[in-house]
Amino acid sequence: MQERQAACRIQVTPLGEAYVTAAKALAADLGLPLALDDPEFALQVGSAGVQLQQLGADAPGPVWVDFLQGGAAHRRQFGGGSGQMIAKAAGLQPGVRPHVLDATAGLGQDAFVLATLGCRMDLIERQPIIAQLLRDGLERARSDAEVAAIVARMTLHHGNAIELMRSWQGDTPQVVYLDPMFPHREKSALVKKEMRLFRPLVGDDLDAPALLEAALALATHRVTVKRPRKAPPIEGPVPSFTLEGKSSRYDIYARKSLKP
């Protein structure tokens, strides 16, 4: 996601006196106010950590990152293991757990699935508020012995993914995974409250072709791009092959085989 400190009006709100100090520190770190006239969003700090709440009469509930409960926990326990389509798309197979860079990390759900399956994960998120939500979720997950071993395989980087990939430092990832925000206008694409919040916050990834170009230049073995099932491929090279599901598909740009 593009690094845009959104034009949206966002304030940081402590959920009780006990969280005022933490809220002030977070506001200073992100360059956000503690109070606004007519704010659109509140980045709330409370007992559950950091959460983003859209304000207004028709706003959905808050969004936060939770790797310990809810959907992440259910998928970790019952998600189908390495038989999941995302695992196949990332090249997992018996004896193969590649080093993967998720260059459009968002709330980290896909990266957490791959880390659960044993992949070493680097994550890039360039929207500062979303990066903070993800950082907070990773920190809280370290309190659980079982999940701590999973998130220990996840390293978060905040910055512009294109720039970071072009000047990548450290071990080169075997696989780069991309899930750019698609400029889809149908209401059905906005059902999830995460998408309803993120659209005004980050907009669409109009630089997806440059993102793909940088990924192809960096990955040693493959680039995997998640797309809506009926969406066109990202402008650029033709995918080597695709894996298609009910609502989404994976375009795979293969460079060489992943082997044990």
Rank of each mutant, 00 (worst) to 15 (best):
Gln93Asp: 13
Gln93Trp: 13
Pro94Ile: 07
Pro94Gln: 14
Gly95Asp: 12
Gly95Pro: 11
Gly95Ala: 13
Val96Asn: 11
Arg97Leu: 13
Arg97Glu: 12
Arg97Pro: 05
Arg97Asn: 10
Pro98Asp: 08
Pro98Phe: 13
His99Gln: 14
His99Leu: 14
His99Ser: 12
His99Arg: 15
Val100Arg: 07
Val100Cys: 14
Leu101Lys: 11
Leu101Asp: 06
Asp102Arg: 09
Ala103Val: 11
Ala103Ile: 12
Thr104Cys: 15
Thr104Tyr: 08
Ala105Gly: 08
Ala105Thr: 08
Ala105Arg: 05
Gly106Glu: 10
Leu107Ala: 12
Leu107Arg: 10
Leu107Ile: 14
Gly108Lys: 09
Gly108Ser: 10
Gln109Thr: 13
Asp110Met: 03
Asp110Ile: 03
Asp110Ala: 08
Asp110Leu: 06
Ala111Arg: 09
Phe112Pro: 00
Phe112Gly: 00
Val113Ser: 06
Val113Tyr: 07
Val113Phe: 11
Val113Pro: 03
Val113Leu: 10
Leu114Thr: 10
Leu114Lys: 07
Ala115Ser: 05
Thr116Glu: 09
Thr116Pro: 06
Thr116Leu: 08
Thr116Phe: 12
Thr116Ala: 11
Leu117Asn: 11
Leu117Met: 13
Leu117Tyr: 13
Leu117Glu: 11
Leu117Asp: 09
Gly118Met: 04
Gly118Asp: 04
Gly118Ala: 06
Cys119Leu: 14
Cys119Ser: 13
Arg120Phe: 08
Arg120Ala: 15
Asp122Arg: 06
Asp122Thr: 04
Asp122Gly: 04
Leu123Gln: 08
Leu123Ser: 02
Ile124Pro: 02
Ile124Asp: 03
Glu125Pro: 07
Glu125Tyr: 10
Glu125Arg: 10
Arg126His: 15
Arg126Ser: 15
Arg126Asp: 09
Gln127Arg: 07
Pro128Ser: 09
Ile129His: 08
Ile129Val: 15
Ile130Lys: 08
Ile130Glu: 05
Ile130Thr: 13
Ile130Cys: 08
Ala131Leu: 04
Ala131Gly: 09
Ala131Cys: 05
Ala131Lys: 02
Ala131Trp: 02
Gln132Asn: 08
Leu133Thr: 06
Leu133Asp: 06
Leu133Arg: 04
Leu134Gln: 03
Arg135Lys: 15
Arg135His: 10
Asp136Cys: 12
Asp136Val: 06
Gly137Cys: 04
Gly137Ala: 06
Gly137Asp: 03
Gly137Tyr: 03
Leu138Asp: 04
Leu138Phe: 02
Leu138Val: 05
Glu139Gly: 01
Glu139Pro: 00
Glu139Thr: 12
Glu139Asp: 14
Glu139Ile: 07
Glu139Arg: 15
Arg140Gly: 08
Arg140Asn: 13
Arg140Tyr: 13
Ala141His: 01
Ala141Tyr: 01
Arg142Tyr: 03
Arg142Met: 06
Arg142Glu: 13
Ser143Ile: 03
Ser143Cys: 05
Ser143Gln: 14
Ala145Trp: 02
Ala145Phe: 05
Glu146Leu: 10
Glu146Thr: 14
Glu146Trp: 05
Val147Ile: 15
Val147Tyr: 01
Ala148Asn: 10
Ala149Leu: 09
Ala149Glu: 15
Ala149Met: 04
Ile150Pro: 01
Ile150Cys: 01
Val151Cys: 00
Val151Asn: 00
Ala152Glu: 15
Ala152Val: 02
Arg153Ala: 15
Arg153Val: 01
Met154Asp: 01
Met154Ala: 02
Met154Thr: 00
Met154Cys: 12
